[in-house]
Design a protein around this nucleic acid. Structure first.
Lengths: 221, 221
DNA sequence: TAGATTGTTAATCGATTAACAATC
DNA sequence: TAGATTGTTAATCGATTAACAATC
């Protein structure tokens, strides 16, 4: 060590760092998405500029975000895709498996169940529910469709942390209530309904149209 | 006028305001989503606090965002839902109809086609395409599934401004290329692929898993 | 009037960016 | 070595928030 730096300010393993700010956590998640896909495509290294092209986050911002946790890159080369994936997963504490319960065995539910989009990030659909008796028992991928009555038992037995609602608007609130009662703290809402939940529960409502409106504004102006 | 204010700094109709910042445009779009839904539910007025509960944006921030464009609220009462919808649509210049071409007549494509999620915001699916000859000609909602060969003609005839990709990863890039060549400037990508497009084209990749990772972080910490 | 909620200010904090030395 | 790209600084800009007067 030729310089007089103070002891490394980056977080050493095992020590609890400060909680990430909302912005940093959101950006890291997006980097992870791109990196996961890049890995699938066989890419071994990626530069902050390439990450910037895909995420629309400024490349300096990306280097800054990452360097806050360690020196993950190689000057002149870029970042190793695979190792950066593990690093970010570690920072976000999402390296493990997390179980999802999916509601609705219609077109959307089946599309979600058969997609890699959750699986790629360690989310596993452990149960699919539908209120329609004619759908109960049907096979969807590796799952058999269950009746909503089984919700409580499944949440406990399978350690479900996320409920995904792919149901008609009229059914969404009742299911949200059931999920809350069963102790699920994260609800991903694909219906258009505004859900009422207690403050400790997080609802994320999918809103592709909102993203389009936003893109359109910058296209029109 | 008893005070000596300078001429109103808010934008009078017809005058081109400055371009919104990314943040403001994003937040206004989210308010619009909630307001649209609140209107559906028959709500007549809404307070900045209620909007805050649904959007997770601080209520002061909401009042601040809105007051930059005019005095839309009524003290002690809140905002009129219907009028606020029109005001925001005006600000975002998305009051009109915009046409979408949808690719993929599988589960996801059919779910999108039959949902109100785009229709509620003035987006109309004017064509559905699929590469599979056995699906061409099939009826999906009011549309007949077309072969991708017709893409160019449809984009021109129907004034398509957005292409939505609900296709397998392997097919996404080729379709993106076709859309770019046909002059479409906004692509909404539901496949997991990283798409290569010229800089003037905007790609928005849907990433429910990213949103979940993000929610999970704050749940786990 | 009393209660509620907006519109707005002022102060703070975090995000963003350009620039560039370090170094692979 | 020459070229590329990271890691980091310093300066700026926008977002956020608490507080409160205005007013419905």
């Amino acid at each position: 060590m030729s310089t007089t730096e103070p002891t490394d300010a980056a977080t050493p393993d095992g020590m609890t760092p400060e909680r990430l700010t909302l912005g940093v956590a959101a950006r890291l998640s997006r980097y992870l998405q791109v990196l996961t896909q890049a890995k699938k495509m066989g890419k071994e290294t990626i530069s902050s500029q390439e990450l910037s092209d895909y995420t629309h986050v400024n490349s300096t911002q990306i280097r800054r975000d990452l360097s806050g946790f360690g020196k993950f890159g190689k000057r002149g080369v870029g970042y190793n895709v695979e190792s950066l994936v593990s690093q970010i997963r570690g920072i976000l504490r999402t390296a493990g498996q997390h179980n999802i319960a999916l509601f609705g065995a219609g077109h959307l539910g089946r599309a979600i169940a058969s997609s890699d989009i959750f699986a790629d990030h360690g989310f596993r659909v452990v149960a699919i529910f539908d209120a329609d008796p004619s759908k109960v028992g049907m096979e969807v991928g590796p799952q058999r469709v269950r009746h909503v009555d089984e919700l409580r038992a499944v949440v406990e037995d399978e350690d479900v942390v996320v409920g995904v609602l792919a149901v008609p608007p009229a059914a969404a609130q009742a299911l949200a209530d059931d999920l809350v009662e069963a102790g699920v703290k994260i609800i991903f809402n694909y219906s258009e309904t505004l859900l009422q939940v207690p403050p400790e529960v997080t609802v994320h409502t999918s809103s592709p149209a909102v993203d389009l409106l936003y893109a359109l504004y910058f296209y029109l102006t």
